[in-house]
Design a protein around this nucleic acid. Sequence first.
DNA 1: TAAACTATCTATAAGTG
DNA 2: TCACTTATAGATAGTTT
Lengths: 147, 147
Amino acid sequence: MGRGKIEIKRIENVNNRVVTFSKRRNGLVKKAKEITVLCDAKVALIVFGSNGKMTDYCCPSMDLGAMLDQYQKLSGKKLWDAKHENLSNEIDRIKKENDSLQLELRHLKGEDIQSLNLKNLMAVEHAVEHGLDQMEFLMSKRRNVSI
Amino acid sequence: MGRGKIEIKRIENVNNRVVTFSKRRNGLVKKAKEITVLCDAKVALIVFGSNGKMTDYCCPSMDLGAMLDQYQKLSGKKLWDAKHENLSNEIDRIKKENDSLQLELRHLKGEDIQSLNLKNLMAVEHAVEHGLDQMEFLMSKRRNVSI
DNA sequence: TAAACTATCTATAAGTG
DNA sequence: TCACTTATAGATAGTTT
């Protein structure tokens, strides 16, 4: 679209490439805005130039986050859902660990022990008795020091 | 660009709007591809028509996820980072709860009790003694049943 | 309903200051 | 390097099949 036809392949001359990028990027954003208005479309556009600079456009009727949520739903592709899933799984894992710690704690305090069989009950009892010994020992040691 | 000039405002005739959408969407994607090749640019484009259908284009050199990571870095806008932060915070919270449960558990077992002051030590001892009573009671009850 | 056509408009490649 | 110009390629609005 200009004084001469060009092939669609990388423009080797850096200057031309940068100039063309700037022009075409503006054109692209303009087109994106136009289709948004003309056709009631939702458009999100992100462009990075080889200089690293970014340009973006998002239709006013929907923010980029919402667009991407929709994108994930319609395309089935995961963007952040995968990352979220990992974190959620970790939360589940820790919560379970937490629950089992809480239960063990209750057992040591003599709560909810009806569900324990004899073997487990004796193990808990043993742990507690051992703990008690440690406490008695520590307290007697402290008494001796303070005398 | 056509038989007549048009104003850039919503096309009221549904049929024209849909046809124009289809044409311009194709044009937009074509332009996106062209600038990608010509200028070494990275482009991501998502378009939703009013019919709900989606079209997307992403340059071959970078996937959409990477583009969006970069977008977040350069723009400072949060897309999923905010959600991640919430989940991460919850993980931290649960982990701390977990740690304190673990510590309490060790205390009840007579471990790490040097750090306890007398008051806390006695509280732990009391809890354990009470627990032990419960266990003894349960075991004697079970013995009576089995006789 | 949709695909092709084509006259016209728009974008832009190359040129200029 | 920039902004501006201009000739031309490309996009597309309205029409036809």
